[in-house]
Nucleic acid binder design. Structure first.
Lengths: 199, 199
DNA sequence: TAGAAAAGAGACAGACCTGTCTCATCACAC
DNA sequence: GTGTGATGAGACAGGTCTGTCTCTTTTCTA
């Protein structure tokens, strides 16, 4: 029988795999390495995840949910669209400055699983779309729908690019200019007074 | 003896490896697959590239040089900073719409070789910095140095994010909003009249 | 406390990985 | 034509990969 999908062991495997994947990549991280680091038997892993690919998807889903929960909590404390977008950028700055920051695991997954039909690709797609739609919903509180959609797309691209630059060691330039550019984009959208406070 | 580094065979290996790396990733592409696809002997490859890692670096360098040459040629035909930036965005749109587009090989390399000391990481860093410095030099023809630097960083992040979105299937939204956001960023820098023509 | 579910331990299979080696063959320059 | 460097073909080593299997032990619950 498949163990319960909320088992503590299962979560331990996911956490261990996450740490290894983000540091060394997906293909470069072998199952043997994961079970050694997690200090579990190989069969325990394979009973929870019949294939490595399913473990990868589970890791991505877990990180996506965690991210969503964190933003949900932070967003609840902010009143205006401007503050909410600023808070999202703040979250990213804290992430970039984390000593264990290694870039975006979702972007990395896209690099290694480039087939649009692959479950990993789709998990990445869902996460990125989730953030885009979250920002779009926020911005709809300050501008028409069409403009909110465009601005959210631009902000997402900016954030993804900033994450890449941060991984290349340019954290200060990345986050600083992301804030500045976000302000310019929102000012360009024309409907968000006070947007320059993002900087 | 090591064969001449400008051999036709060597270039054939680089081209074949490029096609495989971009479709399947670096770790997932085995040496056996490369030599089979290139239809050469394994020793031929290993005489030109003593290790797979050196082949990867050679592929990245070749693509970076090719990119630089293309932009050099295109830039020579444009007069104003605004036109030059627009041409860089046009180049990216054509790339995104290529039927064999699979995202940015350099970003993918960063995903698989995340150690900043690794030669692959450094090759990626050089390429991204090259594009950023190119845009900075262009913008210095229209604004003060400090602003050009910031705007170039913002444009680079935007382009990287757009490349990611394009890989996720959203080519139209990516390039359209990248142009719009680039115009807003340049307008925000305040020194590039007519920047809205980017759209 | 008895029974069921979960986990541990480790051998094993079969494929694939990078990289080495040998020896035959080819092409081209002098 | 002869010699030299480049290439071809393929066996080979030694390691790693994912995934399977069996048997034992633990853990939890009813």
């Amino acid at each position: 029988m498949t163990p319960s999908s909320s088992s503590a062991k299962r979560q331990h495997v996911v956490d261990t795999a996450y740490a290894l994947f983000k540091r060394n990549g997906f293909h470069a991280t072998g199952v043997d390495r994961i079970i050694a680091e997690a200090d579990i038997a190989k069969m325990t892993m394979y009973r929870h995840f019949p294939a490595k690919e399913e473990l990868i998807v589970a890791v991505l889903q877990h990180r996506a949910r965690r991210f969503e929960r964190q933003l949900d909590r932070l967003m609840a404390e902010e009143a205006t669209p401007r503050q909410k977008i600023a808070t999202i950028l703040d979250w990213h700055e804290r992430w970039f400055r984390d000593s264990d920051f290694h870039g975006c695991l979702f972007a990395h997954a896209l690099a290694e699983f480039g087939d649009p039909g692959h479950p990993v690709f789709q998990a990445v797609s869902r996460q990125k779309n989730g953030l885009r739609l979250r920002m779009q919903a926020i911005l709809e509180g300050a501008m028409p729908r069409a403009q909110a959609q465009d601005a959210a797309t631009a902000l997402l691209m900016l954030i993804e690019g900033a994450t890449l630059m941060a991984q290349m060691g340019e954290v200060d330039a990345a986050i600083g200019n992301a804030r500045k550019a976000a302000a310019a984009i929102l000012a360009g959208a024309g409907c968000l007074p006070g947007a320059s406070n993002l900087q």
